[in-house]
Each structure stands twice: as structure tokens, then as C-alpha cells.
Design a protein around this nucleic acid. Structure first.
Lengths: 122, 122
DNA sequence: TCATCATTTCGACAATTCTCGAAATATAGA
DNA sequence: TCTATATTTCGAGAATTGTCGAAATGATGA
């Protein structure tokens, strides 16, 4: 995943209702859920839900499939995997600095600004 | 990290300039970078940059520290760690469905949350 | 104190996002 | 075909976000 796709995925998830919908679909698994069921659980009017599902779909975070009268939405785990990969590889520092993925129970990585000056800018 | 904080962090990162600024600060490491340096590299007018840095700061993704005349910004790795943790735990399916964190090429965070081995330095 | 540098705050505007009722579309069964 | 169900599309208004020049603030050295 590259930066523009990452921005798209981040933006799609950066909303209360969309994150809730996505999590619901993750929990539902590959079988997914019909739009009406998601709307009911989220207590959203159908047209509002469609708006948010379309945002998730544009970012390729979910997919759609018709099943008789219903439209079933399911999480696309590959995209989320790509996003998590992007964040760990590009936003969590590499080998030299703090590594944010390894032991995140508590604040493992504070800010040792005191240790050394490391003034190499000029 | 809980849902509202995750939404805040996702929204803060969901913008081309802010993601670029954040990545730059990750690469810079704990020493951080002065605002002017970030603005110059991103080719952004100073007031626009401030707007974006404030968004990142509100989400606790970066911190600010004055150093003489300059304001130094540095990535807060703990928050990113929390975000990655939130996504892997809440948005990547649990034990039953597809697990999106497992087979990335390199990555550091490969810690399956399904089992709690408590294996310390095996 | 004054001049200068680094950065933020202010203000105004453009652009985008969010919300949701009403109308339209697609499917199924009688 | 007619009716009912499931969901989307349309349209309009409210709210939020993004942009950036100009003015203000804070720090430094002369």
C-alpha cells in the first residue's frame, strides 16, 4: 500500500459511524451483513448508512454482494492488512528509533530527549 | 486506546500533508524537527503547516517543545502504537476469521493477539 | 530598546463532508 | 401485473475542514 491509498483508508475509517460499521463487519466475518441489519444496529437512517458504506467501499475496505433482495457487505481484510502494514513500516520508525509495534501494553517508548544531543543538522 | 481516540488519530493522519509530516517526524526520530524545516520540506506556507501540526497534536500523535526561537515537533510513538494495536485487535478479526496482521513481508508487530503465551524472551 | 527571526493566531473564503427525507430502482411473491 | 421489501440515488442545507495572507507573539542579540 502506498501513501494515497493509506490516506484514503484512514479517511474512510476516521468517522464514528464508519469505524463502528467496519468493526461490525469484521466481527461478522466473511459472511458479512445486509445493509438493513447494519443500519438497524447503528440506528442510522438508510440513506445515511449508504453514504458511509460507499465511503468504505471506495477505500476498498468493504465489498458488496447482492443476495436476493438484500445487499450484503463484508470486510475486505486484505486492505486492512495493507493499512496496518503501511503504518508499521512507515510510521513506526525503523531499526534505529523507537519501534511502536513490539510491546505496546504500556508506554514502552517515552521520549529520551535527555540522553544525547545528536545535533547533526548543520 | 478506545474508539473515540482511534477516530481522532485516524482523522489526524487522513490527510496528505499531515501523513507526510508525521512520517517525516518518525524518520527524524525522538529529536524531532523545527516547524520551519517541516514547512520547507513540505513546501507549505507556515500558517497552513501550523494548522496541520495542531491537528496532529490534538490527536496526541506529536508533541511540541520550544528550543530557543524554534518550536520542535516530535512524533509520539506511544499513540501510533496504540492506534496500530487498536486496529489489529478490533479491526483485524479475532480467532475465527481472517487475521490481517500475520504475514506481512517485514513488519515488527507480528504478535498474534489470539494467544497469550506470556513467553518472555524465550 | 530595537531589529530580526521563527512561528502562531486571526479572519475570510472555498471546498468538502455529513445528514436525512423523498423519490427511484431492484427483487420477489401472489 | 400489483404490492411489498430492501436499498440506493437525489437534492438541499448545516457543519466541518482546508487554505493562506496579514497581523500578532515570543525569543535572541546588538
Amino acid at each position: 500500500m502506498k501513501a494515497p491509498a493509506a490516506v484514503a483508508a484512514l479517511a474512510a475509517l476516521a468517522h464514528e459511524h464508519r469505524l463502528a460499521a467496519y468493526r461490525m463487519l469484521v466481527e461478522a466475518g466473511p459472511g458479512g451483513l445486509p445493509a438493513g441489519e447494519i443500519a438497524a444496529r447503528l440506528k442510522l437512517p438508510p440513506s445515511s448508512l449508504t453514504f458511509h458504506l460507499q465511503a468504505l467501499q471506495r477505500a476498498q475496505l468493504i465489498s458488496q454482494q447482492r443476495m436476493s433482495r438484500q445487499l450484503i457487505y463484508a470486510a475486505d481484510f486484505g486492505t486492512m492488512s495493507g493499512l496496518v502494514g503501511y503504518l508499521t513500516e512507515n510510521c513506526c520508525a525503523g531499526s534505529e528509533s523507537a519501534d511502536c509495534g513490539s510491546k505496546r501494553t504500556t508506554a514502552a517508548v517515552e521520549r529520551p530527549i535527555t540522553t544525547r544531543k545528536t545535533r547533526r543538522s548543520a
